[in-house]
Nucleic acid binder design. Structure first.
Lengths: 203, 203, 203, 203
DNA sequence: GATGAATGAGGATTCATTCAT
DNA sequence: CATGAATGAATCCTCATTCAT
């Protein structure tokens, strides 16, 4: 990578970091592009060197934290399924909290100009999360931890709804609903009940 | 009711009906107050006779359909708890679909001017839904259908999260996730597993 | 007309008058909508109550002066054709000068958003001018002043080109070419030469 | 010419060709410098190696085609004046059509920053065309084809206006007015009528 | 209660141009 | 000569809201 390319990468990172802080504190609508560039220490126009629209930086912000989860799962192969799922859900909700209410709210925003955004970005995030969860369960079936007749699709969607539901409750309850608090209770109450009948007997 | 009052009520209904259709089709941000009044056949200023702010009509839109659910529950007292809950969840998701993605998205919107809106309206809706569900369970305990040690609070929040989660999946999956379809599967899979241990034995 | 309608009309007139002066002095691109409204003594947004786009006021500006010419022609029925044409050309060029170089230049501007402007406004002005000239000649044939075999279409276009050509020379010569000065010389040199063979012999 | 000079010349030609096509298709305002360089296959900054301002490429585009006309006139010395003029006018209008409506419109544009453009470029083009036409007539007087009392100045301006007028009609009629079509009719109708009295008798 | 002209704050976005590499 | 990241000026237009009629 040349020096120039490196400098450009740094500029983009500064913009993302600045946007994360500002949106967490004030909300997406309450800040403008100039706020972001001022905080990042670059000129206003520089924003548009890296992002086509103001909205585009939101997805960029949440990409890095969630990407870490995937890495961690690799390291947890040996753990029992229930623990692995608990960990995944907990980490997911941590990322949600890290991003903050305002960024989560933004995920469900109107897609402003569907004509110019052929691939629906919201759908992308949803599909990405569905896939990751599905893989965890598929692997569990493959390595014999779960029985072959486990309804993977159903369980995947139950868990996704639970996670997105906690996020939405957090956003709509104005903070009354603490997602990390409930995450543990939900996992303890539901995961054994749901997966119990499909766990292979360990010797 | 005088003629004038009646005419006023009609005007308000025309505005709500116009707004529902326009927001469902185009999204809240994509339409303006003039669009609504034009569709309703009244002058722009008339909107502000009935709503203090543009945002206020959103809650008004969703009020009526959800209010019907409460009425129906009255009529279902005799049903077994699982059936009652299944019915409630299904009806809730029907209302969600009736309101449309754009209005659901609006529920999680930033509160634009917190100074002027002392009571957080988003929280109100969330609290309203929590309360209704909680009452169903409390009644079940009171009439002996559920054991006294039933973790009502936990179950209430699990169900609320499931419903809001389905709604959010619907919004974020761009239609791929069919909420009514999954509602039935979720109820069939989860309600017996969760509540089974706490149901009183019927003689 | 009610008082409110009357007040609205006055507002529109103030905007047109302000725009004429500002564009004549500085050019269309050099001024912005706020300049116009400030000069007219109204709020910025008021401009858009009367004009959909900034460009739209240009045609409005030139409408009134050219409309006067049509009225005057009525009053000149009795004059000989050559005099009538001379008068028309001269009055046309006076209107051109009245509007100023900047507004004339604007007539040939790119139509910014053809999708939203179904009827090409530039073509409208050109067609309007062609029609008026054509009518003068047609009437001359009808009342016997011109022979029936007069090539009306050719003469109409020659004259239109001459007038628009003087206008363009004025715009492109940066003032060196004086349109009114040349108008008289052109009329004196060309009108008799062109129309002479087709004028009916007077007794 | 060194290799480097040659490469530079090629780059400039690519830019001019790219700009011609893009402006013809979309108009000067609708394209930006990056469009031109992308089409030409060079970097954005390269544009400014060859042109001081975006506007400057417009005159460069039209220079080559019109320069050809001057060369052709040399070769037509022997032709009778009327034929020579007909040819000139026709070739001029061909160049106008070759450049396209958008570039012609650009010729009458506002001079954006008069302070930095001491010599008015629009005036230059107009003066250039006036001079060329004037020379044709002056030569005709010198070689005896036209009488000494021929009003050269008047005829020059009549013809210039006719040519610029056809161009403007073309631009303003949105294509309805076909300049080449009318060129022939105008020349046939006007040139003999105007110049007839001043042509020297040939033996 | 209805009207609709007037208000004016508000911000994303474009893009010509520069200049260090 | 070529590059392309960075600059930052420039402004049109929208639209929620008010209020005199």
């Amino acid at each position: 990578m040349t020096n120039r390319q490196n400098a450009a990468l740094q500029t983009k990172r500064k913009l993302i970091a600045a946007a994360l802080e500002l949106i967490k504190s004030n909300g997406f609508n309450a800040i403008n592009v100039e706020d972001i560039t001022r905080e990042a220490g670059v000129a206003k126009g520089t924003f548009y060197t890296y992002f086509k629209r103001k909205e585009d930086i939101v997805l960029e912000i949440s990409r890095a934290p969630f990407a870490e989860i995937a890495d961690e799962l690799e390291a947890m192969r040996a753990l029992p399924l229930i623990d692995k799922l608990s960990h995944y859900v907990r980490r997911f909700m941590q990322c949600v909290q890290f991003c903050g209410i305002h960024i989560c709210r933004q995920w469900t925003r109107d897609v402003l100009d569907p004509n110019e955004v052929p691939e629906n970005k919201d759908a992308q995030k949803w599909q990405y999360d569905v896939n990751m969860l599905q893989n965890i369960l598929k692997n569990a079936v493959q390595n014999g931890e779960l029985k072959k007749n486990t309804p993977i699709d159903l369980f995947t969607h139950i868990l996704i709804c639970q996670m997105y539901g906690m996020m939405t409750c957090w956003c709509m309850s104005d903070g009354k609903f603490d997602p990390l608090d409930w995450t543990d209770r939900f996992c303890a109450a539901q995961l054994p009940a749901l997966f119990g009948p499909y766990l292979s007997v360990k010797k």
